[in-house]
Amino acid sequence: MSHPESQHGSMDLEHQEHHVVGPKVYLLIFFTLLVCTGLTTWVAFIDLGVLNPVIALAIACFKAGLVVLFFMHIHYSSKLLKLTVASGLFMFLVLITMTLSDYISRAWGLW
């Protein structure tokens, strides 16, 4: 992905200059998202075995990442907001992995 010119050298943890994202970036992201949507539908019709859901999810994650970073401006935001997004992701993963620890091993030793 293109990294527009707005990299700030040193970022304060909580405060940062407000950054205006322009239509160029939005258009670029918009078209990338549309292409990815087409791609994910197209790939779904090809038999790749276990890779099908993996690829579908990878594309979805990529798309979601683009939306978060550019449409939602996290790429240009303070570290606090980046941390907030990361903590949301982390808690979701805690929910998934800790619950799965039960589901994966529930039948161990029982057959």
Partner: peptide
Amino acid sequence: FGLYWHFVDIVWIFLFPLLYLISRY
């Protein structure tokens, strides 16, 4: 509000492959 709207979009971005694209081949 834009943040909210984009979030709703992201949810759909995940719902679409998970619900529509299981073993379509």
